[in-house]
Design a protein around this nucleic acid. Structure first.
Lengths: 192, 192, 192, 192
DNA sequence: AGATAATCGAGACGGTACGTCTTGTCTTAGT
DNA sequence: ACTAAGACAAGACGTACCGTCTCGATTATCT
């Protein structure tokens, strides 16, 4: 009968070094090449790790990406939602900074890559909202507005956030011209 | 003297038969295998057409898919938006039928496939809204509601629609449990 | 009134211009790219002629090449065999000039290309000897030597020539170092 | 302590099984289809091996063929040169058996295929003489004849052999009628 | 003058094979 | 035990030519 606590199993332990190298390499390549052109072999080479080491711990490319997403290797810092008391102005400001972020050179295609990854993997899909910084910042702000009576008490916050982010995502997929007032219009579509 | 306009160039003319076979095959395979597992070789084989014939007229897999999308080979019939005078009830009904549509066996992953295609191709991205039947049916209904005074006159209709569909898309990507009231909550998030 | 014999058939007549363009293009491409890399499409493009025009008059690549060979489009001028009375010296001199000819830059691979063509086509095979200028010049010289009593009367001239040229061809296929006395050794192997 | 010389590198070792399968398949296909119709894809399929495995170890079709040639996968057993003391009769007998060999059904085109391969590859060219069994058997017999005083002491043996085989090769390329005394005439051209 | 028949260019067509790339599994040696 | 290296079977990629075919224009002969 094994000891109740952690009977450290035999053999060498998983190399934390390798794990970090893989996730770091994934982040770097994701940023430079996008999700589609990411390859397991490329990650292994960039990380200085063997393919088998990746396959041993992750089941697929998207699993690696999902992990890298969790560990914040994939994205630049998310903008935070300001809180001036004016929920509409705050959301517009936040949406604008989100748009500015992905409009920066180098960040081109970042949303597309994330969405492509989400299409492949339920894991990433689930975390897509989080990845765009929503739960942590937007939901909180919305709930504050609800509490302040600026928004109806029965507002389905999660769906509200999804609609907001979804609108942004669809806009990104269209690669349309950067209409200057898109942030304002998008927020106004929800807050009328 | 020949007709003024087309100075018909020399050489054999493009085979309409081949064009149709390719788009048809694309539609069939897209439905059964999804966008990711679609291959040019597979389409060529299914269509009874040579690869070169595909590459001669389309530049990539996504270009073929975009064309098939235009020609309505990819999607089952879109639900139409009812018009009972109650904009909220109508949108909920429409959203519910959309959800039911993609919940049907065989249509699983259809939205994911479409979005994946949109990630690869600006063309498809642009048409994604149309593909989901929006411009044709939803926008019209929204505008009617605006005209009827049920929605503010300055509502940015396009963004409203994008938010609605975007919310639906993000929900689909999450593959979450089929919450029964999701249609209602999504619409209520926008119409509060 | 037309010539009595030829019941000139109806329709346009074969374009001599096209025929010449094809053979000329064949010669040019054969010289620069070798037989293997010669393509019908390449010849058609170089000649400014449609593929069908080639296929209408020639059955295959090798048929075109055979024709070009006959019309002397493929080869630089063949060296002639001198006649000083000394058959051995004459053959060595001729062989040496043959070796020098194919050693010139640009003529590299010419023999290989010819032999490759001969491997594909009986026609070209038959004419390979002729192509290397043998029948016309060497045989005559040999026969003169036979007549002069320098070579046995029952010498099988054709086989003698074949052995001489065959030795040269095998030497060319080996791409060995250009041994300076190879011409002399080759002739001495036959005239001992 | 490892052996001084080969510091065995890491990773899986080359599969001898695959190597043999490839050369065997090459031999089989070469015999049935000839060099021209040999394809890498065909070899891979016949050998039950992936194309990449072939491209990893050989640079081209001709390299595979050259290897198969070395390993004697391509040719039936070469006739040996008899030694009755009569060099002329022996050579005629050998040449006749060579001619008979390639005249057998199934061996048709074997010489042409070999020569075609030699045209493409210096390697094969170099080994073409060996492939026809010359160095091993003919040269030895010739040298014996030289030693016995039947042939001049300064005879360039290599060139003599090349002329003999070259004559045979040119004869084969011509696909002429099987003259019954061709072996005798060819040898007499050299031994007069 | 028309009809007929063969030419020519251009180029689309279904195919085969190329050589490269990636995937996911496996084997071997080093730590 | 776990890693790095790398070979392996499978199969898609996009390209190059193959040989056949269709198109419209042109040219020549026959009625």
């Amino acid at each position: 009968m094994p000891a109740s606590a952690g009977v450290r199993r035999r053999g060498a332990v998983r190399s934390e070094e390798a794990r970090i190298a893989v996730l770091g390499a994934t982040g770097r390549l994701f940023a430079t090449q996008g999700y589609d052109h990411l390859t397991i072999e490329g990650i292994a080479a960039e990380a200085g790790v063997s393919k088998q080491t990746i396959y041993r711990w992750w089941s697929s490319k998207s699993a690696v990406v999902a992990d890298a997403l969790i560990e914040d290797k994939l994205l630049p810092d998310h903008p935070v939602v300001p809180d001036t008391g004016d929920i509409r102005a705050d959301l517009i400001a936040w949406m604008q900074s989100l748009i500015d972020l992905v409009a920066q050179p180098g960040n081109d295609g970042l949303v597309r890559s994330l969405v492509a990854a989400a299409c492949e993997s339920p894991d990433i899909g689930t975390r897509l909202n989080d990845a765009l910084g929503i739960t942590a910042t937007v939901s909180t702000r919305i709930e504050a507005a609800v509490a302040a009576g600026q928004l109806p008490a029965d507002l389905p916050v999660m769906e509200f956030v999804r609609a907001l982010v979804g609108g942004f995502v669809l806009h990104s997929l269209e690669r349309s011209e950067p209409a200057p007032d898109i942030a304002e219009r998008l927020v106004r579509a929800l807050l009328h």
